[in-house]
Design a protein around this nucleic acid. Structure first.
Lengths: 144, 144
DNA sequence: ATAATTCATATTGACATACTAGGAAAAGAG
DNA sequence: CTCTTTTCCTAGTATGTCAATATGAATTAT
């Protein structure tokens, strides 16, 4: 029941881009340093996000990445689902893969469904904007 | 973010024992047939539950397994955590393994914490007794 | 032309998952 | 005491996933 590093890194990656895109787009190399994550790994993760239309890339020198939307428009759930695939706790709940023959008689399914809703409820309640604000608060605290 | 077969089977196993322990203890062979799960795999799972004191075993002919408590005293969360280990969505939240140096400055942690609470909230809300009742209702529906 | 960047694909090692296999130990029935 | 039925214990195995690394091509500002 763990969220993979890929999912967590994706959140940190987008947060880093959101918070560091001032004049120039954000280079992966810098994010890698700031976040202490291998750049090569970040490349793989961001390619998913580019394909999903969550960030746009600018190639060549002075290139980098930019968000395509406002931070408030990225829920954490969107990000996680994009890079992790479904967050459903059992595959019976994945729309496309409901191969379980016991669906009808399965009483556990009721709990898994509720669990699924609870999970999505939390991760879809917060957005990158929330993380940005928390981070800014934390930085303030740190300075004082 | 998936619950493993081991966890799900453990729930079905205990439910099967709860619902079939009439006169004699429940033999794994029968559970395996009823639930369509390999008996060898069930052996491994039940050994965890025996060690945890959730079931007691009776060896030899006419042997089998019995619950040690009332069905209402097993939450689904207890069962899952016992066979799966922690259900925490990030290992930072596992008490013993909080090796993450970013703990202090990590704003995502707030979300993971809330997610953890949501997950445990659901799985600890329901017990084997609930499953038994739902199963009995389902069986009634089926007959009518 | 050069250098800095993204893009694409392949490979790797470690670990976990989901089993299967073989046999030992206990205990009731005869 | 033996046979059979059950649990108990340990090891093995095939497959897949995770978490990266590695290599190099494509693009583009300077």
């Amino acid at each position: 029941m763990k969220i993979s590093t890929k999912g967590r890194y994706a959140v940190r990656l987008l947060l880093d881009i959101a918070m560091n895109d001032e004049v120039e787009p954000v280079r992966l190399k810098d994010t890698a340093e700031r976040q202490d994550i291998s750049m090569k790994y970040l490349e793989q993760i961001i390619s998913i996000l580019v394909r999903a239309g969550y960030v746009k890339s600018i190639r060549g020198p002075q290139g980098g990445y930019r968000l395509t939307k406002e931070p408030k428009d990225y829920t954490i759930g969107m990000i996680l689902r994009q890079v992790e695939g479904s967050l459903a706790p059992v595959s019976c709940l994945d729309d496309d893969v409901n191969t379980c023959e016991r669906q009808e008689e399965c009483v556990s399914l009721r709990i898994w469904r509720e669990l699924n809703d609870a999970i999505n409820g939390v991760v879809d309640k917060y957005t990158l904007q929330d993380l940005i604000e928390w981070q800014q608060e934390a930085n303030l605290d740190y300075c004082i």
